[in-house]
Amino acid sequence: MNKDMKILIVDDFSTMRRIVKNLLQDLGFNNTVEADDGNTAVPVLKAGGIDFVITDWNMPGMTGLDLLKTIRADAALKALPVLMVTAEAKKEQIVEAAQNGVNGYIIKPFTAATLKEKMDRIFERLQQSAA
């Protein structure tokens, strides 16, 4: 796992962005940028250079699910790994996210260990599919 990769954190609550950023620093990822909903995340993604997206679902403006759909529909972005970190916990929602190509799903509140485990799993799977 490349520790220099650039991670985009999308959440409407600045406190949650900060918590995720701190946890990522503990895991050795210091290269992070932030956006407060899908609408502000899209231009950051289109500008290029983002290697990984961690997004909330429930946000005003564009939701995380719509952001995921936008990423998967964009030729330049569609291979980008997306980890959803959200309080949304209905079975239908998890299935919906999976069907739209999410790479991982974490239900808030979560622990540092869960974040590490899901990120490791995403990269493992990406490596497997690339091999």
Binding site: W57, N58, M59, T63, G64, L65, T86, A87, E88, A89, K90, K91, Q93, I94, V95, A98, Q99, V102, N103, G104, Y105, I106, I107, K108, F110, T114
Partner: peptide, 28 residues
């Protein structure tokens, strides 16, 4: 729509373990 955290019996939210099972069933 997104509704925020599941709290009451009407919300029917699942745990992280349930979510993991569900996702591995879907090949994730």
């Amino acid at each position: 729509r997104a509704n925020g955290p599941a709290i009451t019996k009407h919300d029917a939210g699942v745990s992280q373990d349930d979510a993991d099972d569900l996702l591995s069933g879907l090949g994730l």
